[in-house]
């Protein structure tokens, strides 16, 4: 059973938009690495998408979509930075450039297994650690607010979040290794 209106050939712009959606999690990961503020990162993601859409004709299939988008995202992050000014929360532009020059390909590794592993590992966190992670990532609280909510000191929130991440990283790696996935 087919629906001719759905299976018709998509336009170039639609294909590019679909590619963006497909990779949106990675693109956001990339932006978050340069702009740790969630809300601002989301704004940059949105602007990146709008630019990608507007310039979709410039992209040629067969070339590296993500590196093209990363270039646009990078520009958008720097633009955002210029607008809002650098704070101590952000890395220097030199650091960002050197990071982009090496290693960002790690983000492009297949993520499905990793995400599955993460889901399992999250359940293994202690309730407090999980709560801290949830408050940070789901409710977007900065550490100071988490400290208020959990009645901890701000420093102990940083430590708890860092420990939770280390545990998750270890757990994910073990999980992937046990399934024979190259890490």
């Amino acid at each position: 059973m087919t629906d001719p209106t759905i299976t018709r050939t998509r336009t170039h712009n639609e294909e590019v938009a679909a590619l963006f959606l497909k990779h949106s999690s990675r693109i956001r990961g990339m932006i978050l690495s340069m702009q740790p503020d969630f809300a601002r990162a989301d704004d940059v993601l949105q602007e990146t998408f709008l630019t990608v859409s507007a310039k979709s004709e410039q992209f040629k299939f067969g070339t590296d979509f993500l590196s093209w988008v990363y270039q646009i995202a990078r520009y958008k992050v720097l633009e955002d930075r210029r607008r809002s000014g650098k704070t101590t929360e952000q890395l220097s532009i030199a650091s960002i450039e050197s990071l982009l020059a090496t290693g960002s390909g790690l983000l492009d590794d297949p993520q499905e297994e990793r995400v599955e592993a993460l889901k399992g590992c999250l359940t293994k966190l202690s309730p407090k650690a999980r709560q801290a992670i949830e408050l940070r990532y789901a409710r977007e609280h900065p550490a100071s607010e988490i400290a208020t909510v959990l009645r901890w000191t701000v420093d102990s929130v940083y430590v708890a979040l860092s420990r939770a991440r280390s545990l998750l990283a270890k757990c994910i790696n073990e999980d992937l290794r046990s399934k024979g996935v190259t890490i």
Binding site: L91, L99, L107, Y137
Partner: peptide, 24 residues
Amino acid sequence: IQSSEEVRLAFWKRARLHGMLRHQ
């Protein structure tokens, strides 16, 4: 970050986890 490739790789590993956590 600017002085060591090893650091940059470690950065990206952590960044990947950070992004996944946010997404998840």
